[in-house]
Amino acid sequence: MSKIPVQFTLNGTEKAVFVDPGANLLDVLRRGVGDLSPKYGCAQGTCGSCAMLIDGELRLGCLTLAEAVSGARIETTGGLQTGEEPHPLQTAFMEGFAAQCGYCTPGMIMAAKALLDRNPNPSRDDVIEAISGNICRCTGYQPIVDAILTAADRMRGRIA
């Protein structure tokens, strides 16, 4: 079967790749484009480690057809920092020990970003709801929820 040309922007940079029909976006980003920040967990939509933003919406890379993202704007944790400056979510995760093995972290951060983009002042329950599609094996979730609330506070201009 012939390959399909797909164009999209990844973290603000234009990308053009040829993909196999039926290839999933996670594979294309990791193997084709070389963005290793979204993680390969289950490849069946249950763990959330491949979560990313497509046109501002939280999506699972492993369940997204690569050929369907033509013209889309894709954001991953690989592009969150500004220059050397980490995103407030990244800083809060580091400071709050919200990553142990770190495998869930990119998905958690993108799920959190999707929440904060539409609700800068979330409650604890909002945060729990927002990351409920993401599984973490290590932390017991508490430091992740705390880190997201801390980042939200700081992004609203208040130092927690």
């Binding site: 289950c42 069946q44 249950t46 763990c47 945060v127 729990i128 990351i131 409920s132 993401n134 599984i135 973490c136 094996r137 017991g140 979730y141 508490q142 992740i144 929820v145």
Partner: peptide, 17 residues
């Protein structure tokens, strides 16, 4: 038959410790 059906608690089951 796979981890889809393997029950693990999520962030909703945080226990204060």
């Amino acid at each position: 038959t796979d981890f889809n059906d393997y029950l693990m608690p999520g962030p909703g089951e945080i226990v204060p410790h």
